[in-house]
Computed example of a mutant assay.
Amino acid sequence: MSPAVKTSLFFIALLVGLTWAFSFLFEADTTGVSRNENGEIKYYGPIDNGRFEEFKRLYQRGDRLLIRSTGGDLNVGMAFGRFIHENRIPLEVVDFCISSCANYVFLSAPVKTLSRHALVVFHGGPKQKNFLDQMERAYAEDAPVGTSYGVENYEAVVTISEDYRQARYALRSANQRNECPEDQIRNFDGRCVPYSAQQRLNFLIKMEEMLYDSVDPFMDKNIPYYGQLHDYESTYQSYRYFGFYYGIDTLEKLNVSGIELKDGVWEPERNPLFDDVYLVEL
């Protein structure tokens, strides 16, 4: 493999290594993925690569997804959403679907069933106002694994993973061999070019928008963000709430299709998390 290709792969690894995580505030990391004889796959737990790979291993055409998740990795969430969309997998939210679960898994399903007390909670993503600042700090500080930037549990955050650390060291080594400055990479035509946090952020935003376009080009692309903007900005920045949710009418106004109520009734106010989220109306 040529040095240019290797360096480009390190660039992708850096993107993958910066994970967007919602901490496991509501559930211990002891849940998992299982399939029953009725063709239902239960996905209970964080959005991470191990569980997603197990979900794909268990999946059979025609299966239905039951999900209960606080969210997790941004990149895995997008991959999960693409898999849901491409295979037309119907989904039911059991209790809650938060953060990357809401942004990518829920919004990608052709049929989105809400159980009686379910909450679908958003709290930002790569277009969040402070996300670039978080990424720039992560790249600049060379922090240890597990360091997070942003306010965990209350917004999308950047967390340093082991994959990111290994990729960063590999990139530095490659740059030394290729005589590129530390803040640049060698591209396919052999030139040293910048690889800024802004470029990586643009990549993440582009990937998010491409997913939404593939699901439904008419679906509003700012669904994960309205609760952080305008009249809701002060509520968001109070950091008193884990996130925000929309009513059925607002979701339909935002061109989110396929919403169904399991029992014909939706009572999110009876969810134990209800007092920790706020309603966004548009």
Results as ranks from 00 to 15, higher is better:
Gln184Trp: 05
Ser161Met: 09
Ser196Cys: 07
Ala174Glu: 12
Asp189Arg: 15
Gln184Asn: 01
Met210Glu: 13
Glu182Cys: 02
Tyr226Cys: 00
Leu201Cys: 01
Glu209Arg: 15
Ile223Asn: 11
Arg168Met: 06
Tyr164Met: 05
Phe188Cys: 09
Asn175Val: 00
Gln176Thr: 14
Pro217Tyr: 04
Asn202Trp: 07
Phe218Ile: 13
Asp183Tyr: 00
Glu152Asn: 06
Ser173Ala: 14
Phe218Leu: 15
Gln176Asn: 11
Tyr225Ser: 01
Tyr164Thr: 02
Gln166Tyr: 05
Val215His: 12
Asp189Asn: 15
Tyr212Glu: 05
Glu209Met: 12
Ala170Met: 08
Leu211Asp: 07
Ala174Lys: 11
Ala167Phe: 03
Thr159Glu: 13
Asn202Arg: 11
Glu182His: 12
Leu201Ala: 07
Ile205Asn: 11
Met210Asp: 09
Ser148Ile: 00
Leu211Thr: 10
Lys221Asn: 04
Met207Val: 08
Leu211Arg: 11
Asn187Arg: 15
Asn187Asp: 15
Val157Gly: 05
Gly190Asp: 12
Val193Leu: 04
Met219Pro: 11
Ala167Val: 03
Ala197Thr: 01
Asn153Tyr: 10
Ser214Lys: 14
Ile223Tyr: 09
Gly150Lys: 09
Pro217Trp: 02
Glu162Asn: 09
Leu229Met: 04
Glu152Pro: 13
Asp163Gly: 07
Asn187His: 15
Ser148Asn: 06
Leu211Gly: 03
Ala156Arg: 06
Pro217Asp: 03
Tyr232Phe: 13
Thr159Asp: 08
Asp216Leu: 10
Arg172Asn: 12
Gln184Cys: 06
Glu182Tyr: 05
Arg186Leu: 10
Glu152Ile: 08
Val151Cys: 06
Glu182Ser: 07
Ser173Ile: 14
Arg168Ile: 01
Tyr212Pro: 04
Gln176Phe: 07
Asp220His: 06
Tyr169Asn: 14
Ser173Leu: 13
Gly227Arg: 02
Glu209Asn: 14
Val215Gln: 11
Asp231Ala: 13
Asn175Met: 01
Arg165Thr: 12
Asn202Lys: 11
Arg172Glu: 15
His230Lys: 09
Asn187Gln: 15
Cys192Asn: 12
Tyr232Ser: 09
Ile205Leu: 08
Gln199Glu: 15
Leu204His: 10
Pro224Trp: 05
Cys180Ser: 06
Gln184Val: 00
Ile185Leu: 10
Ser214Pro: 09
Asp220Ser: 01
Ser148His: 08
Gln199Pro: 09
Leu171Lys: 05
Tyr226Pro: 00
Leu229Val: 00
Glu233Tyr: 05
Ala156Gln: 02
Ser214Val: 11
Ala174Leu: 13
Val157Tyr: 00
Val215Asn: 11
Asp231Leu: 03
Ile223Gln: 08
Asn153Gln: 05
Glu208Tyr: 04
Tyr149Val: 09
Ile185His: 08
Arg172His: 14
Asn175Trp: 03
Ile223Arg: 05
Asn178Trp: 03
Asn187Met: 15
Asp189Gly: 14
Lys206Gly: 04
His230Phe: 09
Glu162Leu: 12
Ile223Ser: 12
Asn187Pro: 15
Glu162Asp: 15
Gln166Lys: 10
Leu204Lys: 12
Asp183Cys: 01
Tyr154Ala: 05
Tyr149Leu: 00
Leu171His: 04
